[in-house]
Amino acid sequence: MIHANEVTKRYGDAVVVDCLSVTIPKGGITSIIGPNGAGKSTLLSMLARLLKMDGGSVTVGGLDVTATASDVIARRLAILRQDNHLSARLTVRDLVTFGRFPYSRGRPTLEDKAHVERALAYLDLGALADRYLDELSGGQRQRAFVAMVLCQDTDYVLLDEPLNNLDMKHAQSMMKTLRRATRDFGKTVVLVLHDINFASWYSDFVVAMKGGRLAAAGTVDEVIREDMLREIYGMDIHVHEVAGRRIALYYE
C-alpha cells in the first residue's frame, strides 16, 4: 500500500501538487490519469523520493520514503521516469544488471545474474542483450529500461508514461507484461498514463488528478464515467461498454 498524506509541491508561487492525500492499494495496476499539468509526474516523483516534498508525507509498505535509508527503499520500490536520455554507452545487459545494484553494489552474484537473465527474457530482450542502447529503437530502449526496474525486484514499480514512444503493438505488449508481473509476482504497478482507454482496460484502480488536486480515486467503474471525465478533462467524453469494458470516445 502506498499512502500519500497531504503531499504538496510548490515551484515559487505555483502550487503543482496541492495538499493531496491518496491511498494506492497493494497489488494490481493503478493508473494515474489527468490533463497536462495536473501534477501526475510530480506526484509520482514524490512517491518515489526523487523530488523533495514541500509538505506532507509518503509511506510505501509502511516505510516513510524520506525517513528510510535510500538503499532500503531501493529494494522496496523502483521508479522509471520518462525521457531517459543516456549519454553513457551501455549494453542492454549492463543496464539491466544495474537493477541489481541495491543488492550487490556492483558485484553481481550468480543469483543476481539469474535475475538479469529472467528480466531480459520477461521483456523479450534476449536477442538484444549485448547490443548498445544507442543502437536500439525508442521502443526497444523503453523495454530495456522497464527490464531494469523489474530486475530491481521490488514490490512496488512506478512508471511515468511507459507507453511513450511505443506503437500499438508494443504498447499492448508492455501493458500485458506489466499485468503479468502483477499476477506472477504480486507486484504493485503504478503508472502515469495519457491514454484513458489503456487505463480503463488494464487498471485495477484509477487515480484522477486535476490542477494538482485529487479529482477521483477508485475502481475503473467508479472513475471512468461520463460525469467524472467531463469534470476532470473539461470536455465531453462518451463512455461505451465494449466487450464488458469501458471505452471512452473523445475524438469529436
Binding site: 516523483s45 518515489a48 523520493r49 526523487l50 535509508a69 535510500s70 538503499d71 532500503v72 527503499i73 531501493a74 529494494r75 523502483a78 521508479i79 522509471l80 521516469r81 531517459n84 543516456l86 549519454s87 553513457a88 551501455l90 549492463d94 544495474f98 537493477g99 545494484f101 541495491p102 553494489r105 556492483g106 558485484r107 526496474v149 530491481q152
Partner: peptide, 21 residues
C-alpha cells in the same frame, strides 16, 4: 568505485532510484 560512477552517469533520478546518494 567504478559502478557508482557509471550509475551516476545515468543521471540523478536513476542514481536515487538505485538507492545511491
Amino acid at each position: 568505485a567504478a559502478d557508482r560512477f557509471t550509475v551516476a552517469g545515468l543521471g540523478r533520478d536513476f542514481t536515487t532510484n538505485l538507492g545511491l546518494n
